[in-house]
């Protein structure tokens, strides 16, 4: 079961037939493992990692890492406010962190203005938010374990002993 998740995490396009060979299971077993995992929230979704910097006309995407300091609420702690913030479509990722601030929020927008407007109009004014500190990301080098620059190229000879 773990094998299937690992194989899909590396390449979600693998078909049940391919997965069956790689994990040594029958196609039927693979399909039922996946169905169950999807319904139980083990597999949350499938998507491609797109490097928008390489898409003509879309290079201007703006990413920001926003440190957010919040007041935890009785009964729900940080979850209440974190979940509220995460519902905004501008928010790509959101983590509760230790240290100087409480939430690390990754926001993606089409322009600096758009991200700025989200922070000042929506995020900073939310009840429970004490302060924000916005860092604009300048360049992505590695995302979700994948390199976004041209990495190692094998110089292997085509035939060797």
């Amino acid at each position: 079961m773990k094998d299937i998740f690992k194989l899909l995490e590396e390449d979600a396009r693998r078909t049940p037939e391919q997965l069956a060979v790689l994990a040594g299971l029958s196609v039927g077993e693979v399909v039922s493992i996946i169905k169950k995992a999807e319904s139980e929230g083990v597999i949350v979704g499938y998507k491609a990692l797109v490097n928008w910097d390489n898409v003509p006309g879309e290079e201007g995407q703006v990413w920001a890492l926003i440190e957010v300091k919040v007041v935890p609420q009785r009964g729900v702690g940080f979850d209440g406010i974190a979940e509220r913030i995460s519902r905004f479509t501008e928010v790509d990722s959101l983590y509760l962190v230790s240290g100087q601030f409480d939430l690390a929020v990754i926001v993606i927008g089409k322009s600096f203005n758009e991200v700025g407007a989200f922070v000042s109009n929506k995020l900073a004014t939310m009840e429970g938010v004490q302060g924000t500190n916005t860092h604009y990301l300048l360049k992505r080098y590695k995302d979700d374990g994948l390199w976004l620059f041209k990495g190692d190229e094998s110089q292997r000879l085509p035939v060797s002993p």
Binding site: D152, S154, R156, L157, P158, V159, S160, P161
Partner: peptide, 28 residues
């Protein structure tokens, strides 16, 4: 001479070859 190197020259001049003729990892 090692028979294994026989194809080497032919191979080098061909395009689109998938080589299962190597004796080393593809990992860097």
């Amino acid at each position: 001479p090692s028979g294994i190197r026989k194809f080497f020259d032919i191979l080098a001049s061909m395009e689109g070859v998938i080589s299962l003729g190597v004796g080393e990892p593809d990992f860097v």
